[in-house]
Design a protein around this nucleic acid. Structure first.
Lengths: 98, 98
DNA sequence: TTTACTACCTTGTATTGCAAAGTACCAAAT
DNA sequence: ATTTGGTACTTTGCAATACAAGGTAGTAAA
């Protein structure tokens, strides 16, 4: 039914600009979503394995290198589907409220 | 984060009127949510064990007796919390879209 | 008495989310 | 030089959720 709101959020974030895990965590936090590392990292790996994301390493001026994730064409397709699914879920809830 | 949209839907449905599992499935279907028995029955039992629901048996004119579920005061409290959580989730998604 | 329909329940499996602990790079302070 | 602190990525083990599939049982019509 609800195939992962978090997946949806990750694709949303990466559809605007590439990002690395820690920065994604900050964005989620800023949007008031509490997610922790142990949730996010496996999820990113799953989405990469599904071909929705790719990544590249980039040196950081401060600390270890960062793994920047980038959304793929397939990822954008999935995002479009999830947009629709999210919309429908909202409609369903509205229906039940009446 | 998203502590069960389905739980939320069940409470929504039962907040309007009591119902038995099969009728709940029909309501969900009418609202375009695909849920199956194997999902719903354990969920109702869980919610009952949490004190969110109670039930009573009622004879049916056609077929076996039905287990009518009724939302409890505690269930209504939880529903109010979930209403708020649902609202917030929507806000979070909106934030991420900007 | 078999078939059909309705309704409830259980088992096993895959997925998801999290807590917790671990690895490793870098730079500043000791 | 070595320790400390900060950043970042990863893994392991556990609990909860959703589903497919199969099972139990009451009622009534063929």
């Amino acid at each position: 039914m609800r195939k992962g709101v978090l997946e949806y959020c990750i694709l949303l974030i990466l559809s605007r600009k590439e990002a690395y895990a820690s920065s994604i965590l900050e964005e989620l936090k800023a949007a008031n979503m509490l997610v922790v590392e142990g949730t996010l990292y496996p999820l990113l790996i799953r989405q990469k394995n599904q071909g929705l994301l790719s990544y590249r390493w980039e040196e950081s001026t401060q600390g270890p290198p960062r793994k920047y994730y980038v959304i793929t064409a397939k990822g954008r397709e999935q995002l479009a589907e999830m947009d629709a699914a999210w919309q429908e879920l909202g409609n369903s809830i509205e229906t039940l409220k009446k």
